[in-house]
Each structure stands twice: as structure tokens, then as C-alpha cells.
Design a protein around this nucleic acid. Sequence first.
DNA 1: TTGCGCAAAATAATCGATATTATTTGAAGA
DNA 2: TCTTCAAATAATATCGATTATTTTGCGCAA
Lengths: 221, 221
Amino acid sequence: MDIPSADGSATQRAYRKIRQMIVVGELRPGEKLKIDGLRERLETGASPIREALSLLTSDNLVERLDQRGFRTAKVSAENFAEILNLRCTLEDLALRESIARATQDWEEDIVLAHHRMVRSKDSEQETFEQYHKAFHIALLSNAESPILLKFCSQLYDLNIRYRFLAGSTLNYQRRDVSDEHSGILAAAVARDADTASEKLLNHYKTTGAFLSGLLGNGSLS
Amino acid sequence: MDIPSADGSATQRAYRKIRQMIVVGELRPGEKLKIDGLRERLETGASPIREALSLLTSDNLVERLDQRGFRTAKVSAENFAEILNLRCTLEDLALRESIARATQDWEEDIVLAHHRMVRSKDSEQETFEQYHKAFHIALLSNAESPILLKFCSQLYDLNIRYRFLAGSTLNYQRRDVSDEHSGILAAAVARDADTASEKLLNHYKTTGAFLSGLLGNGSLS
DNA sequence: TTGCGCAAAATAATCGATATTATTTGAAGA
DNA sequence: TCTTCAAATAATATCGATTATTTTGCGCAA
């Protein structure tokens, strides 16, 4: 009995790994995803790879071509604009619902999530990103709407992919996003939905406008 | 060379077929989906089945259990309420955007889609349902927002599943839903977003309230 | 030179079988 | 009679190989 090096099934490992590779841009937009190539890189069989790619298809990170395999989703300014728009709408919705149902438990959850994010600011980028997402999801999770939360999570990943593609992650981490996060947290804890939502959407739109600018040029592939 | 009886790959056929079986309730909510059983019923190998189930997982129609296979998604009053809510929000958004971008082509598309639906009223249920969905999707499709449209399509299927489970499809087809559809179409053609949206949401809420009532009892499994 | 068609190679999709993992069954002991 | 443990069973997950499809590359003719 040999330990398979990580927890979960081969499919789940492949899913997480390929997803990560796409999100951070290690696999470029529109790149052909050859089963055999991935099979080698991830040291597994063809079945887990195919299953993982099928899952990613539904996350809008991979496209399936009739009988010609898979490729990563293409990027475009239109696509980015759509993601940004939808995020703003759906997260506004979820955040307001979360706040409307606020409980002490949830309050503690978001405070904790925020703290972890702040503490990891100087850690590896991957760690920070993980906590950053966790914080944003925690804000929304009290809406008690699993489907909506899933949509938001998907959109988050689609969005973050653009950030990685623009290569501006370091800037982003340094830009005074801390204040923005703190402000959102404070408003949420105070159960002030209007302020929280306004700050959250501003947070997105600021980053979004920045990326939109970059997309006008040629950061695609 | 033998023709594979239907177009598309084995995976796609399996996907469509299993999806259909879940939506119409042939596979009950929470039912265990045994690979071998499906493999026999669909006369194909295990790989296409697994891939199809992976795709359905992301449509929220199938749940994957750690290392214990798949089952159909469970149903509940809460789940239904969430679907209804989200549908109303997202379709309102999409419809308004569609109307805002109205063109003559789109106008003709929806008139045509409506006509086909009306004409198929006395056809087989499956045919009618197909055109019914096509009409609703056509209304939203001019929003030029593929992701949003996909969300709406998913929610449509999740919702229709409840209608089938309640066994009220025949009632529904007869109830004077025709007037509601005509009204929505007319308002959309007139580019009156407020009226169109109001009628659309009313359409959903009426059906929704009816189903919610049934769910209070025991139409689950 | 360019376009066409056919053959060869590459790749994807599928299958059948094996290994792995959960679940059930049944017997022994308390 | 109930609990516990282990073997048997059943089902899943995975692999390796086969089949079907698409793409590539070459030769030939216009």
C-alpha cells in the first residue's frame, strides 16, 4: 500500500492541479490540452485527466471541442467585462443577504478569515491568494444559498485568472487593498449592508478598471 | 463502420440521456447511480458514463460522493426556493439587458420561438418542453452574456425537474400559461422592459407558489 | 507554383480488465 | 441478544490497450 502522495482520488488531484495551472496562467489561454501530455505531467492515467477536464469545462475554464479534445478557455476584454459585471451583481446580492441574516457565528467567521488573510500578506503568493478567496467567500457564505455561492466562487476564479495573466499580482498585493478589505469587514460586522456592498463593489471595479486597461493592449495569448 | 445510432460522442449521448432521465424524474432524487447499471442501460462503456456524470455534477443535478460514486441531487423545499429566487433575479437581469439591446433579428427570433412553442402545444410533452425552454432562453439570449445565459439555463433545468417531480406537467401545459407567454412576448417586442420583466417574474412566481405548496407535503423521495 | 487527394501519423475516445476501496455478511465472544 | 471483528462481496476508481477520428505530410496533377 503506497500513499498516493496527496489526499483524495487521482481525479480530484488532477482537477485541482490543472485548475491551478490554468488559473495562474501556467497553461495559456486557448492552449491545447493534450491528454497524453497531462498524463505524463501529473503521473496518472488518462481517465482521471479526462474526468478532471470535464469538470473544468463546467467551470468555464476549459472548452471541449467536438471530437478534438480540450483546450483552455480563451480570454477577451468582453469576457472579462462580463465576469466583472456578473460578479458585482451576484456578490452584491449575496453580501446583502449574508448581512441580513447576520449572526454572531458568521461575524466571528469573517473576522477570523480576515485575520488569516492579513497575517499571510508576506507569505507565499499562493497562500495569500487562498486566504484572500476564503475571506471573500466567507463574506457571502451566510446567504445560505449554495448555488449562488457556487456561482460567485466560479466567477472569482475566472476573475483571478485575469489578474494572473496580467502579471500584476504583486502590485495588487501591495496596493492598498488592505484598507479596502478592512473597510468591508468593518461595515459587514456593523451590519451596514449599503456601505459594505458599496465598498466591495468599489474594490472590484477599481481592480477591474485597472485590468481592463491592460486588456486593451496585448496581454492575451 | 456502423452508425452510433445518434450524433455526437458516446459521452455526449450519455450526458444528454442521463440528464433527461434525472430531469423527468426517471431517476429519483437521491438515487444511487451505479456505473454498471447505467453502462448496461445506455449500452456503452464505463468511461463515457463517468464523464457524463462529472459534467452533470457541475450542473447541480448529480452529487459526487468522496469515493463512493455518484447519486442524483436531492430535492428540498429550501433548494426549490433558492432556485426560484435566483431565477427571478438572474432572468430579470438578462431580460432587461436583452431588451435594452433589442434588434430586429432578436425580435424575429423570439416571435419565431414563441410560435413554435404554441404550435407544439398538442404535441408530445417532451417536444413542447423543448420549445418552451427554447422560448425562454431566446428571450434572454440577446443579453450577449454567455455566462449569465448558462446560469439561467442551468436554473431552468433545475426548476423544471421539480415540475416533473410534482407530476403536474399536464396541468401546467393546460393552465392559461398561453396568455402569460403572449403577454411576455408582446411586452418584449414592444421593448417595454418593466412590463416584460413583471410578467415573466409573475409567471415564475405563480408556478413556484403552486409547487411550493406541493412540496410542503411529501412529493419527495 | 498551387491545389487536391490519399496515405501515414498523431491524437482522442472508448473499451475491458485490474486494483482499490467501501459495504455487507456472518460468526465468535461478551 | 447485542457487539465486534474479519472475511467476503460489491462497487468504484484506475489503468493499459484498442478503436475511431482528425490532422499532417507527401506526391501528383493542373
